[in-house]
Design a protein around this nucleic acid. Structure first.
Length: 878
RNA sequence: GCGGACGUGGCGGAAUGGUAGACGCAAGGGACUUAAAAUCCCUUGGGAGAUUUCCCGUGAGGGUUCGAGUCCCUCCGUCCGCACCA
């Protein structure tokens, strides 16, 4: 394309994008070599689940990662930027049930389709390292690590609850429980205990918590969420005596955990989890209690469901003895909001200072006694009715604790009860407790990584010998019935015990897909190695990931599990780092207006026409003209049909337009609203850049740099280098929306400069314009790589801009000799003062006081105070 | 229920505690054109005023400060996560 024709022709994105993608791929410029001597930089976006088509969220995520990858490459790094597929999971089995396709075929078809879509985006990925977690060549190593973790004591089997669908006779995921009912059968869900495999993540609670402080390139909110999730609390493990006359089997004590021992004198009741052994024992002798416990189990296992369910209790008749008063008896209830997983599964309730306990006593008429009095409140009149008080204050109604602060009271109670003994052990001991539970990885499903274990009646649980790995999934499975196809497969689970060679059966549970995604980024460093999950030398060179980018929805689980896995891999020798992700960025979602027809059906944006403006803005069905209701702006989802297909956008405007729009306007960590106008704006700017570069290409410029620059040339050069400095800093900090704004500003400045040229520009200006053009193209290259290549060629370069280095800023072009400072009087702007950049404070003060506006405001009086903030502002306090 | 965030013009947003509204979108006016599209130029937070001026204004209310969109407290609203969705 010549410069001359470029002036008149539109940039044909469709044609050019395919051409440049081919050029990149033929020259193999994005293939990463592990022996590349340059400084390594690992940029990674969360890999997609192969659902069938990429969505705009993917476009946003992968565009951001690609900008970083291209920028770091230009900065001289060896960049690892791989892609793969989180390919196991429920949707494949649902497709098998609904459409009678095999999960494997469905998954690989989807991968092929989505790979093609991703490639059309022009991402600078090293496809040679592509992995799919459903590939036995991948999960073989996962099984190996499971066995290594088992040997290292990081795996255990224990009982745990699942959602059970009594009609389909199958385990349900929380997602498959809708309003307490199974999504297919509609039956009321029950809780059921199963023996399952767990990774002992709780062994690392303290370490996972402490190391958060070292993750200084993670968002604070994510660190805070993880901290709260781990939930460290210091408290007291306290043994209450029970009145044996009231207990089912002469039990004599009940151990509870509390973080508020200071409130012991406000205790009104004890409460047990329905799964507590004492509750179970009591239920065995009390059919009404047994029925109550059964009722407690008639709900799903989701935390939100348990917490929002009505608080219910059942008085067991058992009496507990207050630790400070043998005559003080407390009723023991079974309550549906007490979890067996946390603490000891039993609590004492102090209703005045805990809202849940207060709701409970108000329901069962047990009353409350406030024991902490807020500052400024009269203890005599302080009462609690509906709202518990959980703030600071002084102890009241608490005998020997009265007058103490909460902390002093906690200490006093602990000291006293620690010393007291019953039997041979102390009544209480201090304990650090964590909310974090072990990671249950067993799933009663087909499409996942088989757990490499064999159950033998004689030998018990036997690991599959390493030579027999991978344990592969059988392909001849049926999905005509609910339940786990592996379990009902006629032959797959029958094996010989590796120890005694007797008949045995395979473990039919597969692993949680979070296991797959907890180490995929290790595998990318050497996806070819067959003998081990990782090559220690290579993995330690690349890890940790320098920049990880993905959705905020993964802030806790995926990231915490990956952090645990890193520790476990370190312990078992598969990696040498302590943290997997040095830098983390959580992007916002892509959202869109919703549209609804009169009959309530959701309508796709592609079928809607928007008319009118402001209050008159309304929507109609494009085909019939029928009115359509414009709904709220929501996350793009299939269910609300408010999706825009990236393929359609790329076909209409090109990948660069989609990429540019994704980076414009909204800050990357916030939601972005997809609008047709915004896309068109991006497209127009792309065309404008093309015209602008075409105009520069037409100008003849001297080959060598002029010795001096006149004012017009200097203006252009300053704009170019300021843009360069700003964009560089903002890409580095992933503030892509500001990069976009700086590029607009730069393009506007360049257009102005070119507009002012009347005849052929002088040599220095021509040179400066070409310099600016070269800088501009390299600045927008990470965002719009195809257009950048086309422009780079138009400017006469024979190289690929994708392999060019980042331009170097000339710092002397960034500083001005004079600056203009705003002048405030009592905090309100009243004037400006222009002064030498390096002026002394006293000079600035003198110049400011000489201003007419300041003299007028002061009315001849001298100012009370003059505040000079160098380079920023002057404020006069009159 | 628990945990986390967010709230600034008509819209998306910008603003190390220091000129609120950069940049874009939309709108209005103009140029070019037979016309349209495209492109280019100008205007655009609200109010008052004759330009160069003043007042108000960052969800609401308080506080800290010479100075608050930014920090602190209370409240209101919206969104996200909650351990078997990925």
């Amino acid at each position: 394309m010549t410069a001359d024709s470029s002036k008149n022709e539109r940039y044909n994105a469709r044609e050019a994008e395919i051409r440049w993608q081919k050029a990149w791929s033929e020259q193999g410029i994005f293939a990463t070599k592990n022996d590349d001597p340059r400084p390594k930089y690992y940029v990674l976006e969360m890999f997609p689940y192969p659902s069938g088509r990429i969505h705009m969220g993917h476009v946003r995520n992968y565009t951001m990662g690609d900008v970083v990858a291209r920028f770091k490459r230009a900065m001289g790094n060896a960049v690892l930027h791989p892609m793969g597929w989180d390919a196991f999971g429920m949707p494949a089995e649902n497709a098998a049930i609904d459409r009678k396709v095999h999960p494997k075929a469905w998954t690989y078809d989807n991968i092929a389709a989505m790979k093609k879509q991703l490639q059309s985006m022009g991402l600078s990925l090293d496809w040679a390292r592509e992995i799919a977690t459903c590939d036995p060549a991948y999960y073989k190593h996962q099984q190996k690590m499971f066995l290594d973790f088992l040997k290292a004591g990081l795996v255990e089997r224990k009982q745990s609850k699942v959602n059970w669908d009594p009609v389909d006779q199958t385990v349900l995921a929380n997602e498959q429980v809708i309003d307490g009912r199974g999504w297919r059968s509609g039956a009321e869900v029950e809780q059921r205990e199963l023996t399952q495999w767990f990774f002992k993540i709780s062994d690392y609670s303290e370490d996972l918590l402490r190391a958060l402080d070292t993750l200084d390139r993670w968002p604070d909110k994510v660190r805070l969420m993880q901290k709260n999730w781990i939930g460290r609390s210091e408290g007291l493990l306290l043994r209450f005596a029970l009145d044996p006359a009231t207990t089912p089997n002469k039990e004599t004590e009940l151990e509870i955990f509390t973080t508020r021992p200071d409130t012991l004198f406000g205790a009104k009741f004890m409460a047990l989890s329905p799964d507590h052994p004492l509750a179970q024992a009591a239920a065995a002798k009390n059919p009404k209690l047994a029925a109550f416990i059964e009722q407690c189990h008639r709900m799903g296992t989701a935390q939100a469901e348990i917490d929002t369910a009505e608080k219910l209790g059942f008085d067991t008749g058992i009496k507990a003895v207050h630790p400070f008063d043998a005559n003080w008896k407390l009723p023991v209830y079974v309550a549906n909001f007490i979890l067996m997983d946390y603490g000891t599964g039993a609590i004492f309730g102090c209703p005045a200072h805990d809202q849940r306990d207060l709701d409970f006593v108000n329901k069962y008429g047990l009353g409350n006694t406030p024991v902490v009095c807020p500052p400024g409140q009269d203890p005599k009149t302080f009462v609690i009715t509906d709202v518990a008080y959980d703030g600071d204050g002084r102890m009241i109604n608490s005998r020997f604790l009265d007058g103490m602060s909460i902390e002093e009271a906690k200490e006093a109670v602990a000291k006293r009860l620690e010393k007291e003994t019953r039997g041979n052990s102390p009544v209480a001991q201090r304990q650090v407790n964590y909310r974090l539970r072990d990671w249950g990885i067993s799933r009663q499903r087909y499409w996942g990584c088989p757990i490499p274990i064999i159950h033998c009646e004689k030998c018990g649980v036997v690991p599959v010998p390493e030579k027999d790995l991978p344990v592969t999934l059988p392909e001849d499975v049926t999905f005509d019935k609910p339940g786990n196809p592996l379990d009902r497969h006629p032959t797959w689970k029958s094996v010989k015990c590796p120890k005694c060679y007797g008949p045995a059966r395979r473990e039919t549970d597969t692993m949680d897909t979070f296991v797959d995604s907890s180490w995929y980024f290790y595998r990318y460093t050497d996806p070819w190695i067959k003998t081990a999950p990782t090559d220690r030398k290579i993995v330690d060179e690349w890890l940790p990931v320098d920049q990880y980018i993905g959705g905020i929805e993964h802030a806790i689980l995926h990231l915490l599990y990956s952090r645990f896995f890193t520790r476990a891999m370190h312990k078992t020798g598969h990696a040498g780092v302590d943290e997997p992700f040095a830098g983390l960025f959580t992007q916002g979602m892509v959202v869109h207006e919703t549209y609804r027809a009169k009959n309530g059906d959701w309508i796709e944006p592609a079928n809607v026409k928007i008319e009118g403006l402001g209050d008159a803005r309304h929507a109609i069905l494009a085909s019939t003209g029928e009115p359509v209701e414009i709904g709220s702006i929501e996350k793009m989802s299939k269910s609300k049909k408010n999706t825009v297909d990236p393929d359609d956008i790329i076909a209409a405007y090109g990948a660069d337009t989609a990429r540019w729009f994704m980076l414009s306007d909204s800050p990357p960590d916030r939601d972005v609203i997809w609008t047709e106008e915004g896309v068109q704006g991006a497209w127009r700017f792309m065309q404008r850049l093309w015209r602008l570069i075409g105009e520069i290409a037409e100008i003849d410029a001297p080959k060598t740099r002029p010795a001096t620059f006149g004012e017009p040339a200097l203006v252009v050069r300053k704009a170019a280098h300021r843009a360069l400095a700003n964009v560089s800093e903002d890409i580095d900090k992933l503030r892509f929306n500001r990069c976009v704004a700086h590029i607009y500003e730069f393009a506007n400045a360049l257009s102005d400069a070119i507009g002012q040229i009347e005849s052929a520009p002088a040599g220095d200006l021509a040179w400066a314009l070409h310099e600016a053009g070269d800088i501009l193209v390299r600045l927008f290259h990470p965002m719009m790589p195809h257009l950048a290549e086309e422009c780079w060629a138009a400017l006469g370069h024979k190289t690929l801009v994708a392999t060019e280095s980042w331009p170097k800023v000339e710092p002397e072009l960034l500083v001005e000799s004079t600056i203009t400072l705003p002048v405030q009087i009592n905090g309100k702007k009243r004037a400006d003062v222009t002064i030498a950049r390096d002026a002394e404070k006293s000079d600035i003060e003198a110049a400011v006081l000489a201003l007419d506006a300041v003299k007028k405001a002061l009315e001849g009086k001298s100012p009370k105070k003059v505040i000079v903030v160098p380079g920023r502002i002057v404020n006069i306090v009159a």
